[in-house]
């Protein structure tokens, strides 16, 4: 709260100095504006929790810090950069490409999936014979399937009974 008040006083003072700017910023950024920025940042202490919903006191302070920075007219990108400088890449929702090493998180899954697709496609080709047999649609097949299945169930059932005797 204190920090908040200081910021507030600071802005008022600024406002007195630059009346024009003060007219545009006579109100503190709303919670929604703060949360919009905080949503794309991750809590540096608790794992995998976006800053806008993190209930810890530390996160409350960080949200107030964002409010202060927004009040100073900082952009979302600047605020993100500030948090990255302070706490490292982990505050970002995904590993940034500014670190070359992080490339592999984006490259490896598509490569594996592609390899899987190639293996699958080649196996399919190998299995597929060019002979084409005309077949009915699913339901028509099902109907014939069901009746023939029934017959074979009966015959097999009989056979099974005979065997058991």
């Amino acid at each position: 709260m204190k920090k908040f008040l200081y910021t507030f006083t600071f802005i008022i003072l600024l406002g007195i100095l630059f009346t024009g700017a003060a007219l545009a910023q006579d109100k503190l950024p709303t919670d929604d504006e703060v949360n919009k920025v905080a949503h794309n940042l991750y809590c540096p202490v608790c794992q995998n929790t976006p800053l806008d919903v993190c209930p810890t006191d530390a996160c409350k302070d960080w949200r107030e810090q964002i409010r202060g920075m927004l009040a100073e007219g900082k952009t979302e990108a600047q605020i993100q950069q500030y948090f990255v400088d302070q706490f490292g890449d982990r505050v970002l929702a995904a590993p940034p490409l500014s670190t070359k090493f992080n490339l592999i998180i984006y490259i490896i899954p598509p490569l594996i999936i592609l390899a899987g697709a190639i293996i699958l496609f080649r196996s399919l080709k190998e299995w597929t014979t060019p002979k084409a047999v005309e077949a009915g649609s699913g339901a028509a097949r099902d109907a014939s399937e069901a009746s023939s299945q029934k017959d074979s169930y009966v015959t097999r059932f009989e056979e099974e009974l005979k065997k058991q005797k």
Binding site: Y42, P50, R90, T99
Partner: peptide, 14 residues
């Protein structure tokens, strides 16, 4: 990442 670069990263919902 932490093992090779020492940098902790988050892999989040996005």
């Amino acid at each position: 990442s932490e093992l090779f670069t020492g940098q902790k990263v988050t892999v989040g919902p996005p």
